[in-house]
Each structure stands twice: as structure tokens, then as C-alpha cells.
């Protein structure tokens, strides 16, 4: 729980994306130090904590919702975050991960694990086995985050420039709703 004296808590999550948005986040450079003074980053691909915390004030989500695991994470994020921001085009629109949506999943698997596989040599290799164990099943479509949970704010861009991320964070910390299209756009 946030007490008036404690710093707001922040988490960042990486679903089906290329990590570009997180790279852009790291591009905040020395502003990261300023940020560290303003918030506590509880959970992120760039910090150690593995479990998503019980309660966070603000979560930035990169990536589309592609697999059942992504969906599971998204629901947890929503339940435990006060504010959820879709960070970058994959989370906002589906973007590149959603380009598989024009095809059937079985065609995709066939392409990836059969047609594009190396020439099989042994009978075992010839028996094509799709990876299933320990791999989260793909959902029929990769979708934007707001198709599965309520999203409070959207920052488009592929990736959103560091300045845009900075603007977003500082506006939120100042208690204002950022006008994100003034700093970024689809494909920026």
C-alpha cells in the first residue's frame, strides 16, 4: 500500500515483443537515476525479482498477448496494478506479432517446424514433433493488451522514443493524463 511518504511503485513487463521498448526505456540514460529517486521499480526484466508483486501502482507492459501464458500474466497484472500502461505498438495494436494472425496456427507450425526445418536424416527426425512440453500454447490471435484487460493509458511507437517514455512517466507522477500522441505515434 502506498503511504503518503513512500515512493510510488512501478513494474515493467515483457510479453510478446522484441524488447525494443525496454531498450528505449534504458535509453532514458541518466534520467534513470532521477527516476530511481522518484519511484521504486519492484519488478522488471532489468531487476532481479522474479514474481510479480502483490500490489503495484504503475505497470508498463511491452508486447502483444500471444500465448496463454501472456494472457495469464496480463490478468495478474491487471488485478495487482492501479494503473496499466500499454507500452509500444505491440501492446497497443498487436503490431508485428499480430502479423501471424492472417494465417491459421496449423499453417504457421507447419511452416516453422516442417517446411523450414533442416533436411531430416534419421527416422526420429522425420517424425515431426511440435514442441508442446513446457511451451505455452499459442492463442488463435496475437492481440493488443486492451483486448484482454482494461488498459488505462497507451503509448504507441515502435519503440516509443525515450523522451516519450519520460514524458509519460513524469506526467503520471505529476497526476496528469499524458497526451501521448503529442510525443509518439504508431510506427514511430
Amino acid at each position: 500500500m502506498t503511504t503518503p511518504t513512500a515512493k510510488p511503485t512501478v513494474a515493467t513487463v515483457w510479453l510478446d515483443g522484441c524488447s525494443g521498448c525496454h531498450m528505449s526505456f534504458l535509453d532514458l540514460d541518466e534520467r534513470l537515476i532521477t527516476l530511481a529517486g522518484l519511484v521504486d521499480v519492484l519488478h522488471s526484466p532489468v531487476v532481479d525479482q522474479k514474481q510479480f508483486p502483490q500490489q503495484v501502482d504503475l505497470t508498463l507492459v511491452e508486447g502483444a498477448v500471444s500465448s496463454e501464458e501472456d494472457l495469464h500474466k496480463a490478468l495478474i497484472i491487471r488485478a495487482r496494478s492501479k494503473l496499466v500502461v500499454a507500452l509500444g505498438d505491440c501492446a497497443v495494436t498487436g503490431n508485428v506479432p499480430a502479423m501471424r494472425n492472417y494465417f491459421d496456427r496449423s499453417d504457421l507450425f507447419a511452416r516453422a517446424y516442417v517446411e523450414n526445418a533442416q533436411e531430416p536424416t534419421t527416422p526420429e527426425e522425420r517424425r515431426v514433433v511440435l514442441p508442446v512440453l513446457g511451451v505455452p500454447p499459442l492463442r488463435p490471435h496475437a492481440t493488443a493488451l486492451h483486448e484482454v484487460i482494461k488498459v488505462d493509458m497507451f503509448l504507441p511507437g515502435c519503440p516509443p522514443p525515450a523522451d516519450a517514455i519520460w514524458y509519460l512517466l513524469t506526467e503520471i507522477l505529476a497526476g496528469r493524463t499524458p497526451a501521448t500522441t503529442t510525443v509518439s505515434r504508431f510506427g514511430k
Binding site: T2, D57, R78, V148, I149, K150, D152, G175, T177
Partner: peptide, 17 residues
Amino acid sequence: ASHAGDGDHHVALEVLS
């Protein structure tokens, strides 16, 4: 209901700042 957390983001913003 697939959409969890129908909170109002304006309220959340106030708490945050």
C-alpha cells in the same frame, strides 16, 4: 468477465501523485 479491474484511472492518478 474477461476485463478485470474496471477502476477509474483518474482516481489512480490522484493516489499516485
